[in-house]
Design a protein around this nucleic acid. Structure first.
Lengths: 255, 255
DNA sequence: CGTATCCTTGATTCGCTTCAACATTAGTGG
DNA sequence: CCACTAATGTTGAAGCGAATCAAGGATACG
């Protein structure tokens, strides 16, 4: 395993190396995002072994990218704090936000077992991630069936998440896309112990639009429209949901 | 392992059980779709062990579904012949085709490690699939690192495929969506030894439209339009690509 | 051979984009 | 800390692309 580790070290750029993290700080078993993250509902004994998965931590400033699209894949990242966007870059020059990610969620799954990341990951605010080297994931997944299962489930969930976006882009009207987006954010904040009704958006109107397949002007108009309908209160990035039911009702309408 | 197998047998509906397949017919090592399929470029020794993965075969008639959305997950399916569509069903009643699949491609990855399939799989013509029980996949992936790696790569590829659809739905105009679709089919037929320029569509205009986020009338109009532009010849489901470059040029246009 | 499904084409409508101007905020350097 | 500038957000008016509504025609299947 030290051979594996040194290979990983060799691959990491110098500026992102960190001093060996303190055991209690790095360990998944002590992390309160654990259940949302790769370890999931692992038993105490398996969990102790998975602690070794976190090879290092890495801090990023707002706007910094964790990896570029097409960069060599060698690790998956778990978000400890902050948030990210995943950006797709088409060979025809098109760009699109494929998703927004927050604490406990995994970045880089699209590079798993293949040579390179497909989407880029960019920090939307100052953030910190745990580095999970693929070599260690492979090894531990072979040794711990529960972890193997969990990894598969996390990958399948990513596929299902993408299916949700395809549904949104393929079948919903602009109103419904934004409502879905807000309700999704709300639910994810709630699961993390934050308010489901009041939160701060970490992305621009343009980034939301890119994700939702809309132009930024349309997103802006929809925010105003939702506000006038008494569904939400908006002050730029600060959103307060006033009528969750009302937002949900939007989704049932029409085709 | 016989415990595993009997568990699998218990899970399978009676009507889909088959007599034990002949060794030479069931084996991946003799299958010419192998490289496109789960085994990929596995070495000869590993390949021999993977042969055991194919627990059975299953034949489906046109229109029959391999599994429903939400059905209990217990196997992944590899397409031996024919083709399928994957259909998403939203809780708000919306439906969308998430993808079309042909020989050597895998169905059911969205259920991996979780309890249920997310999308339904329906045969677009009379088809045959190999049944790869999840219990066996898990077991062999632990024992054969190359298979484990390949499984991860196949899952990541599915995510990347979905990213492509998101891109298509989020950023492309109707013309470009259909052009992308035709070029994608063309490339996949070519990889399977069929003509890249002449093929038969296995899905209706409506199914294509659903996949591309368009109405069937729009798809129909686009076919006519492409025909008039000298890009393709269409006779209902039969398509002949006359100007691949021309189709590709469509993708570069505009935003 | 007859019927249901699938496909095509036309006319019209509508939702979102585009173009444009301006307001506000955040970030930067003096 | 304030002034300044770039980035971000709002709103309006006009245009366009795809949806909708509608009708007729071709094909596949029993």
């Amino acid at each position: 395993m030290s051979a594996v580790l040194s290979a990983v070290i060799a691959l990491k750029p110098v500026e992102s190396r960190m001093p060996a993290p303190q055991k209690h700080a790095a360990s998944c078993s002590k992390c309160n995002l654990r259940e949302l993250c790769l370890p999931g509902a692992l038993g105490a004994d398996d969990l102790a072994r998975v602690d070794n998965l976190v090879y290092a931590r890495r801090r990023l400033k707002k706007g910094e990218s964790l990896y570029q699209a097409g960069a060599a894949f060698n690790a998956v990242y778990a978000i400890r704090s902050g948030s990210f966007k995943a950006s797709l870059l088409d060979n025809d020059g098109r760009e699109q936000v494929a998703g927004f990610f927050m604490g406990g969620e995994l970045l880089g799954l699209d590079g798993l077992g293949s040579g390179a990341y497909h989407a880029a990951a960019v920090a939307l605010e100052d953030s910190e991630v745990c580095v999970l080297p693929y070599a260690l994931i492979e090894e531990l997944a072979r040794e711990i069936p529960a972890l193997q299962r969990r990894l598969h489930s996390v990958l399948a969930r990513e596929i299902v998440r993408d299916h949700g976006v395809m549904m949104l882009l393929g079948t919903m009207r602009a109103e419904q896309r934004l409502a879905t987006f807000l309700l999704n954010l709300s639910a994810r904040f709630l699961r993390r112990g934050y308010s489901a009704s009041e939160f701060r958006l970490r992305m621009t109107r343009e980034e939301m639009g890119s994700y939702l397949g809309l132009k930024l002007e349309t997103v802006s108009r929809l925010f105003s429209q939702f506000h006038e309908a008494g569904l939400i209160e908006v002050d730029h990035r600060h959103v307060r949901i006033r009528d969750t039911q009302g937002l949900q009702r939007l989704l049932d309408e029409r085709n």
